[in-house]
């Protein structure tokens, strides 16, 4: 189990995170906040690139910074800006990282083949990565994070650059992987986590706003989300969420704190509604 205990992170006078406490057991955890909300700082502390200013992070009861390589052996990490050597092929790149992760060459070779197939890069395993699309590079990044079969998989904005088909495949992969490990992923793309996350952790104003299941989080707006194509007829003050086109009409989805009589229909709130409503001061 991974436990974040009352962690605060400061950069000089700027506080990035304050008094954060979370417990992670098997399953998918999604960190959700707008850009600059502290997700990456928290993730960097979880992978020991940064240290908490206050508090502690424990893996099975031991401080992760004192565990050293013992902890690094069980993590898989995909950074937000995933770097790679352009002149390398995915196969040589994965073999190189496998060596850095201390994986035996024989095992590394097998694991590389398996992962290249898993992320559908088997056909281009020996092509230089300089010609790869953003989505292909991201898939190489996901593969490298899985090389050591990590007990703790930490992915920072993993779906950035993936096309819709790749996104679906990624979600299925994460669901499969989370059966026997902790998967922590940060994103500001709500749709990515709605279906796969067991718990969603929202960060606001440097603190945890909520840490709950997606359905419980959606229920916080139960009975308050409506949809209409005629916003002029809404009598109450309301907060607009999203718009969609249907049959030549523009439908507006909105939140109204009080019961909203008139032409608007109540709809089931989703995570995106909650996200837009909670971060209404920050989302453009």
């Amino acid at each position: 189990m991974l436990a974040v205990n009352r962690v605060t992170k400061k950069y000089g006078g700027f506080t990035a995170l304050e008094d954060i406490s979370i417990e992670f057991t098997k399953g998918v955890y999604a960190l959700l906040s707008p850009n600059g909300g502290g997700k990456t700082t928290l993730i960097k502390m979880l992978v020991t690139l940064l240290f908490p200013t206050k508090g502690e992070i424990l893996w099975d009861g031991s401080d992760i910074s004192s565990l050293g390589e013992e902890y690094r052996e069980i993590i898989g990490y995909l950074p937000q800006d995933f770097g790679y050597y352009k002149n390398q092929t995915p196969r040589t790149f994965l073999n190189y990282l496998a060596a850095l992760k201390g994986i035996e060459p024989g095992t590394a070779k097998k694991k590389t083949e398996e992962l290249l197939r898993l992320v559908s890069l088997g056909d281009v395993a020996d092509k230089k990565m300089r010609k790869f699309s953003g989505g292909m590079i991201q898939r190489v990044g996901i593969a490298q994070a899985l090389l050591n079969d990590p007990k703790l998989l930490i992915l920072d904005e993993p779906t950035a650059g993936l096309d819709p088909k790749e996104r679906v495949r990624f979600r299925n992969l994460i669901s499969e992987l989370s059966k026997d490990r902790i998967v922590i992923l940060s994103t500001h793309i709500v749709s990515d986590v709605e279906t796969i996350a067991n718990r969603v952790i929202m960060l606001k104003d440097r603190k945890i706003l909520c840490n709950d299941t997606p359905s419980n989080i959606c229920n916080t707006l139960k009975g308050k989300v409506y949809e209409t194509r005629n916003t002029d007829a809404i009598p109450k003050p309301y907060f607009p969420l999203t718009q969609r086109q249907e049959d030549g009409y523009t439908y507006v989805r909105f939140v109204c704190d009080e019961e909203c009589p008139g032409p608007a229909k109540p709809v089931t709130p989703n995570l995106e509604d909650v996200f837009l409503y909670v971060f209404r001061d920050e989302v453009i």
């Binding site: 690139l49 690094r72 990490y77 770097g83 790679y84 050597y85 850095l100 992760k101 201390g102 490298q144």
Partner: peptide, 18 residues
């Protein structure tokens, strides 16, 4: 300056040890 610096620091053998 390497694009892989951060990632290499999270591996079993960190780039600092290497």
């Amino acid at each position: 300056m390497s694009v892989l610096y951060e990632l290499k620091m999270t591996c079993k053998y960190t780039i600092r040890q290497i």
